[in-house]
């Protein structure tokens, strides 16, 4: 079953809640890079049938792949979505913790994309040149940024933009 990213929440909720489908178990969630588009593939299982239902969210643009998160139905999908983000750069909107999970936090590229070539590949296809795409850098301001060691009150300026915790919003200093 192929759906577009805008329908994910609706379709998944229907499959999960409808008493005829009862797809209560999400077996797997993974990203796929077909070379032209990104996909997110879900495998659902219901006790009504022994077969898997494969739901493919198709047609995510490679430049800016975005899909809604399904963590509102299965909060265990959080790490699977983190993995898909880490490996493919697919951004799951609604995931509370979309950080890198395997690669270091300052890593810049997405290893399982098809345009990420291993160093060996340069040797495998001569004439193509060195295509080692791995590029890590440590931005200077990251290294110098003091972190939340002194409590929130003095550090509010260092929070990433757009992130507001409840404490910050209320202006309360929890250390006090």
């Amino acid at each position: 079953m192929r759906i577009s990213p805008t329908d994910v929440a609706q379709v998944m909720t229907l499959l999960h809640d409808d008493p005829e489908f009862r797809f209560l178990i999400l077996s797997d969630l993974c990203g796929v890079d077909t070379g032209s588009v990104m996909q997110v593939v879900y495998h659902l299982w219901s006790d009504a049938t022994p077969d898997w239902l494969r739901v493919i969210v198709d047609g995510l643009p490679r430049e800016d792949p975005r899909a809604p998160s399904v963590t509102f139905l299965w909060n265990g999908a959080e790490w699977a979505e983190r993995e898909a983000y880490d490996m493919f750069g697919i951004i799951f909107e609604g995931n509370r913790d979309l950080r890198r999970i395997y690669m270091p936090p300052d890593y810049q590229s997405f290893p399982l994309r098809k345009d990420f070539l291993l160093a060996d590949d340069a040797a495998r296809s001569p004439g193509q040149g060195v295509r080692h795409m791995e590029q890590t850098f440590q931005p200077a301001e990251y290294r110098r940024t003091p972190v939340l060691r002194q409590g929130l009150g003095s550090d509010a300026g260092h929070m990433a933009p757009g992130i507001q915790t409840a404490e910050l919003a209320s202006g309360e200093d929890p250390a006090r």
Binding site: R99, P105, Y142, L148
Partner: peptide
């Protein structure tokens, strides 16, 4: 404590220390 500003809601919550 990683030297980065918190990147996600969850991380901000986790690294906010209470008394």
């Amino acid at each position: 404590i990683p030297p980065l500003p918190p990147r996600t809601e969850r991380e901000a919550e986790f690294y906010t220390m209470r008394d």
